[in-house]
Design a protein around this nucleic acid. Structure first.
Lengths: 243, 243
DNA sequence: CGAGCGGTTGATGCGGATCAAGGAGAGTGG
DNA sequence: CCACTCTCCTTGATCCGCATCAACCGCTCG
């Protein structure tokens, strides 16, 4: 039977009927491989597609006129990408594969069908995009009002918690798979300063590293430094009626 | 007949059937007045309500442990507020009235009914919240990667364009109705530095001011300085079928 | 074996924070 | 009608966190 990475992920948070699972599987019926570094969507291109990320990592970003880059979000397997194209016909952001990936594109008109056939699933997509909005506001507050060290701590914790949603084997460490420059572009710092912060946190024993793998040694302290709260813990998807 | 501020606003961008208008009117059937400075929602409170803002201005914000504030968004009449409570049972952000306002709260369960009875309207809400997400990413890029002057310019242009959606009388000026401290808290600066940037832009003739009213004298140049693009112009809501 | 990328570290500079003081206007109470 | 207060704006002086510039190292890959 066909599988749906997205359904699996949703099912961890809310029960799904078989019909709903089938509807989700249909969204992923056109898997496409993209090599590391490959462009999935270019800013200002005309787009009508959204994606489910099945495997690997993807980032969305914009490039400013002076050449600097702001990474808007890093996506993990099971994430739902590119919802902006439901409302803008020109992509407001670029999408690039951070590793070899499998993405499943589907046309925005498929959402329409989903809305008619599985309104509850459509509603779940709505809720998830609200969760993403809240994640954005958290980072907004971090960039606007917190120190470099706080941002790095919050970034690591966020990545850790999001990876753990789909990967039960994660206990206290994870593969970064991002350069320090990419981290900097996510949280509004230079790679040089990201490096200094990471080295400092390593010296203080908060984290440790071995070839790209980060271990979080003192999560309580990291949460305090980063003013971090795990939003994934208190999501409430249950109020949607089983229809 | 009852009116819906929200329906009026949506109708500017996409045709609505009478049934759909009625559904929107029902969302606004419990208007509530709140005085300037009044708290509409407190962070961490248990909430199940969303709001349509009918009159006045509202801000959403968070306070960090060190007491500093990040304003997440300023809302104008016709805006749809608090979608985070669809997914979190505890409010992730506070809502305060920036002026005397009229808000129309409705329970999140009303969304469910909306989904069943007017799926197209439910879809429109989804699209609008995606637009808000994109607005967030624009500000994220501003905070992460642009100068103080660029942020102020982009902030003014954004306010201008958003106010113009519902107020046709606006040509090149608008009432700020925000203190410089509030602007700073929106774009990650101190009030002192906001003041310096505004005064500088005034000296350069880019803007002018008279008791709280801002006039944009050179929009092209302001857009260049702020790396600003008006997202409201190329929204595409028409692909949703008339059902 | 050379080239390129990513990480590391030091030196220096600058944009915006912080601290401080004063001014204008609006509201308030005597 | 006038002190008084409070909020917000304005401006100068100083400070500091992070950017910038630069050099070098180790690794991987062609």
């Amino acid at each position: 039977m066909a599988t749906s990475c997205f359904a699996e992920r949703l099912a961890k948070q809310v029960p799904l009927s078989d019909a709903e699972k089938r509807a989700l599987i249909r969204l992923e019926e056109n898997p496409r491989k993209v090599k590391r570094g490959g462009m999935i969507q270019r800013v200002n291109d005309t787009v009508t597609e959204l994606f489910v990320l099945r495997e690997g990592r993807v980032m969305s970003f914009v490039i400013l006129p002076d050449g600097s880059r702001q990474i808007l979000r890093v996506y993990f397997p099971g994430d739902f990408i590119g919802s902006a194209s439901t409302i803008y016909s020109k992509a407001p952001e670029s999408l690039v594969a951070l590793s070899d990936v499998i993405v499943c594109p589907f046309d925005k008109h498929a959402l329409r069908r989903l809305l008619e056939e599985s309104p509850r699933v459509a509603a779940l997509l709505f809720l998830l995009s609200n969760a993403e909005r809240v994640a954005m506001t958290d980072r907004l507050a971090a960039l606007g009002r917190t120190s470099a060290k706080a941002r790095v701590a919050a970034f690591l914790l966020d990545m850790f918690d999001r990876l753990r949603v789909t990967d039960d084997s994660i206990v206290d460490s994870f593969d970064l798979k991002l350069t320090q420059e990419e981290i900097g572009d996510s949280i509004g710092l230079t790679s040089v300063h990201v490096n200094r912060m990471i080295r400092q946190m390593e010296l203080e024993g908060l984290i440790s590293r071995s070839n790209g793998r980060i271990t979080l040694n003192d999560m309580a302290r990291l949460e305090e430094i980063g003013h971090y709260t795990n939003r994934l813990k208190d999501m409430d998807l249950d109020w949607l009626p089983v229809s």
